[in-house]
Amino acid sequence: MRAAAPSGTKRSTVVTDDGARLTVYTDGPPRAGVTVLLSHGFLMTADVWRLQARELSARGVRVVRYDQRAHGNSDPGSVALTVDRLGADLAHVIDATTPHGPVVLAGHSMGGMAALTVAARQPELIRRRRPHVALISTACSRAQLVPGSHPLHWIKAAARAGYSYPLCWLPPAADVARRQLPSRHPWALRPGTQHQGDTPPPSRQAIRRTPTDQIAQLWKSLRTYTTAEKLHALNALDRQVEIITGELDDWIPLSQTHELARQLPNAHMHEPVMGAGHRLPTDRVGHAAVTQILSRMTEAALRAPASTVTAPLR
């Protein structure tokens, strides 16, 4: 792919069917031959993709990322926060920002679950657009507190339970405590603030405007989520789906990655990135692997027959 000078990040808004205003960030040439659409994880923002956005847009790729609802600069909307809702949001973002042309869709963690939800709930979308899909550090089954059987994993599980249960069952008290935290603390609650400028807010600001009750809603949904046995449309894409994880991921353990691969037998599962943890797009050793895979997928998307990628989304 011939490199092109990257354009500056452009900020825009996509309004969903329930009125939520999702903040979208676009990099790269507006008329690029392929668009990479990036969906981030729980308690993060679109900034988690900054390295990929910078590298891919410099190569002439159009890159679209967005803050999930109730994260970063995006509104929570008027309906309950669930993974199903995030999947519907992702469909809206694709429809609004990339109604035609080749698409590479990459989802990290909860963002990958949103992509899987699109495939499970709106399989016609997958059949029409035939995207190349990167599922990064994600799962088709519910979030787990215990990542494995090692004693250290049980210690981590106890720590996670120690803050997740109060958040879920005592959100008003949690809000009071969050308002007392220093402004730079990732859990600080500052409802009146908003990140300025066109670039996404840092991930530490992901939930600074999000009341604890909304975080609890989403966490409870993650704990019951599943798309198992519902991914036939995605599996039909054959080798256009790739599964990537980090060797040291202790949020989505390797057992869940293998289960995802069993649900998608036609997908290509990469060897775990050695020495990399859960936040693979910004991981010290993992980010380059993610960028390389996405770059190769954009090349493959450009080579796909035009008839398979130009149909409108809905």
Rank of each mutant, 00 (worst) to 15 (best):
Q180N: 05
A134M: 09
L81E: 00
R279D: 15
E259Q: 09
K220Y: 13
F42S: 05
P123Q: 08
A206Y: 04
T199C: 07
A288C: 15
A119D: 00
S109R: 09
V48S: 05
P6S: 06
W187T: 12
D67L: 03
A311H: 12
S78M: 15
H258Y: 11
L254V: 15
A233W: 00
L86G: 02
D17T: 13
A4T: 12
V24T: 13
T291F: 12
A120Y: 02
D283Y: 03
R59N: 09
R11C: 10
V61T: 12
R223Y: 11
H92L: 11
L294V: 01
L313Y: 01
R190M: 08
L116P: 04
A53N: 06
M274E: 14
E229G: 15
H153G: 13
D84N: 13
P186C: 06
A288H: 15
S57L: 09
G28W: 04
L125G: 06
A91I: 00
D17F: 10
H153F: 05
V48R: 10
G286Q: 08
Q52T: 12
S78R: 12
A4W: 13
A177H: 09
L125R: 03
D67K: 02
V36L: 11
H258R: 15
A70Q: 00
L170Q: 13
V64Y: 03
H185A: 03
M1G: 07
I215G: 07
W219A: 14
I94Y: 03
K220M: 12
Q144R: 12
A236G: 01
H40A: 05
A20F: 04
P312Q: 09
A32T: 01
A88Y: 01
H153P: 05
D95Y: 13
L86D: 01
R65G: 00
M110K: 07
Q144H: 03
Q217V: 02
A174F: 08
T82F: 06
A91W: 03
Y25L: 10
G8F: 06
L22P: 00
A173T: 13
W169H: 14
T308K: 09
Q292R: 13
D213Q: 08
S203T: 11
H92D: 10
H132Y: 06
S57R: 08
H71S: 02
T138R: 05
T138I: 03
L234M: 05
V103C: 01
P182C: 08
V133A: 05
R284I: 12
A106I: 02
